[in-house]
Design a protein around this nucleic acid. Structure first.
Lengths: 148, 148
DNA sequence: ATGACTGCAAAGCCTTTGCACGCAA
DNA sequence: TTGCGTGCAAAGGCTTTGCAGTCAT
């Protein structure tokens, strides 16, 4: 579902791409703009549809390639919402983010955030023998509609 | 990597399958036994290899079908360790479990557990408008070897 | 005996790759 | 001008499905 356009992220992303030596091709720019409209989990195919609807169709391969670059640069986080399907989400430069509760039956995604959960994760991340760059928490079960 | 055989889980799983009305076919039983040897993330293809090595080869489709049943019954938890590849892990009836730190570069998986992280997750699970049945936390970054 | 279980092969599906053309710098 | 970026189509790789034979009960 599309939300208000996050131009701050969009500009930041384009700038980072430039700094990393990438050119500003039409497809890449279009994918960045499409992502700017999603606050939460979007799939590559949903972005493709968004772009086609906006009369700015982009080849599927270019979408995947753009997502790959953005993820490498830490501008996007990838995770699996539905079985076998990758979802992407913008990474806010401020570090502020949320996690997800996902319905097993209908796939509905409910984002949530919790400071103390974040603190616990930060503590654990520091304790583990890894240089942790990101984390992801997923809660799975039934949403209210599906639980009845 | 294989670890000591968890016969408690193995018996529990077979019993639950029986109670759910499933027959004790050879393939299904073999998959359950193979799973009993893994404390942490195993993929369907790794199980297939284990079984073939043990001279008890099981058709790939049967492995996937067995994993599906076990997951439905809550005896197994599925998650994505490597990109696009499903990993499975036994669910201990006691509720005791761990989470994972995964290396972006080499794929190494380091399990960890943390009581206060679990508490934070339980609290959040109760606050969200879902009937949460399971959760999963993944930390991603570079392991010591890959960070150098 | 009967329907669940199994294995093989084929099909599905998301994602990636090969390649020739177009475009940013 | 140069080689990165793009699109199309084909290939990949994990997972699922169809179907006929087999086995548990």
């Amino acid at each position: 579902m599309a939300t208000a356009r996050d131009t701050a992220w969009e500009e930041h992303a384009l700038e980072m791409l430039g700094e990393a030596g990438y050119r500003r091709g039409g497809a890449r720019t279009a994918v960045v703009e499409a992502l700017a409209h999603h606050d939460c989990a979007v799939t590559a195919l949903e972005l493709e549809e968004d772009l086609r609807r906006d009369e700015a169709p982009v080849g599927r391969a270019s979408i995947y390639r753009a997502l790959e670059r953005l993820e490498e640069l830490g501008l996007l986080q990838r995770f699996e919402a539905a079985r076998g399907i990758a979802s992407y989400e913008r990474v806010n430069p401020s570090g502020h983010h949320h996690h997800h509760a996902i319905c097993r039956r209908c796939g509905r995604i409910e984002p949530f955030e919790d400071r103390s959960l974040e603190r616990a994760i930060e503590r654990v991340s520091a304790a583990v023998p890894f240089e942790i760059a990101e984390h992801d928490v997923t809660l799975r079960g039934l949403c209210k509609s599906c639980a009845d």
